[in-house]
Computed example of a mutant assay.
Amino acid sequence: MIALIQRVRSAQVDVNGAAVGKIGQGILVFLGVEKEDSTASAEQLARRVASYRIFADTNDKMNLDVRDINGEILVVSQFTLAADTRKGRRPSFSSAATPEQANALYEHFCASLRSHNIGVETGEFAADMQVSLVNDGPVTFHLSV
């Protein structure tokens, strides 16, 4: 399971011109699910995202997590993160989970985040989404389990 996380001042996901998820300060998570992923890996990655210290403290050091700043998380499914791009001119998605498996694990990941007392918004699984954000920093990290 792969999470590309971005520290944001705000983020929004639109589907067919309508906002389906919107947050203020917090973390935008692009989530990729692979065939070998499980509910345990979704829970482990959710714990990492919830506790990842990417927000500045009073000394301007990255020592605070999203809960410490009363931030929110916007989770967007993105199967392209599971692409193998090591060779050729076109990505291979052979390691990506099936849509059914990916959706179940995406939902489990979101529920796991919510269990950490974090406000979680989502995109719409498998939809054509337009994502807008104000990256704070910019600060972007690739997490995987």
Results as ranks from 00 to 15, higher is better:
residue 106 Y to I: 03
residue 108 H to Q: 13
residue 84 D to N: 08
residue 103 N to M: 13
residue 110 C to W: 10
residue 110 C to S: 15
residue 59 N to V: 00
residue 63 N to T: 09
residue 96 A to R: 13
residue 107 E to K: 15
residue 67 R to H: 09
residue 58 T to S: 15
residue 72 E to R: 09
residue 52 Y to I: 03
residue 102 A to D: 10
residue 65 D to M: 01
residue 99 P to R: 13
residue 88 G to S: 01
residue 130 Q to V: 06
residue 121 E to Y: 06
residue 71 G to I: 05
residue 97 A to L: 11
residue 99 P to F: 09
residue 52 Y to K: 12
residue 63 N to A: 13
residue 90 R to H: 10
residue 67 R to Y: 03
residue 53 R to V: 00
residue 94 S to L: 12
residue 42 A to M: 14
residue 44 Q to C: 11
residue 40 A to H: 13
residue 90 R to M: 05
residue 121 E to G: 02
residue 64 L to G: 02
residue 128 D to H: 14
residue 61 K to S: 07
residue 118 I to T: 08
residue 112 S to D: 01
residue 113 L to H: 09
residue 89 R to T: 00
residue 128 D to I: 05
residue 48 R to T: 06
residue 127 A to C: 05
residue 38 S to C: 11
residue 55 F to T: 04
residue 68 D to S: 15
residue 92 S to T: 02
residue 95 S to V: 02
residue 126 A to W: 11
residue 122 T to M: 11
residue 86 R to C: 00
residue 107 E to Q: 15
residue 125 F to Y: 13
residue 131 V to T: 04
residue 61 K to E: 12
residue 68 D to N: 15
residue 78 Q to H: 13
residue 74 L to H: 07
residue 75 V to H: 08
residue 62 M to W: 14
residue 81 L to E: 00
residue 96 A to L: 12
residue 62 M to K: 12
residue 50 A to I: 07
residue 118 I to E: 10
residue 64 L to E: 02
residue 100 E to H: 11
residue 66 V to G: 09
residue 93 F to S: 04
residue 119 G to W: 01
residue 115 S to R: 14
residue 47 R to D: 15
residue 48 R to H: 08
residue 93 F to W: 11
residue 52 Y to W: 09
residue 59 N to G: 07
residue 52 Y to M: 09
residue 89 R to F: 04
residue 110 C to Q: 11
residue 37 D to L: 03
residue 105 L to K: 12
residue 84 D to V: 00
residue 122 T to R: 15
residue 85 T to M: 06
residue 91 P to D: 00
residue 49 V to F: 11
residue 49 V to K: 13
residue 96 A to Y: 13
residue 41 S to R: 12
residue 63 N to Q: 14
residue 37 D to Y: 04
residue 101 Q to I: 10
residue 99 P to D: 04
residue 92 S to Q: 10
residue 96 A to P: 10
residue 37 D to I: 01
residue 94 S to V: 05
residue 47 R to N: 15
residue 96 A to D: 06
residue 90 R to T: 05
residue 38 S to E: 07
residue 115 S to W: 04
residue 115 S to V: 02
residue 69 I to N: 08
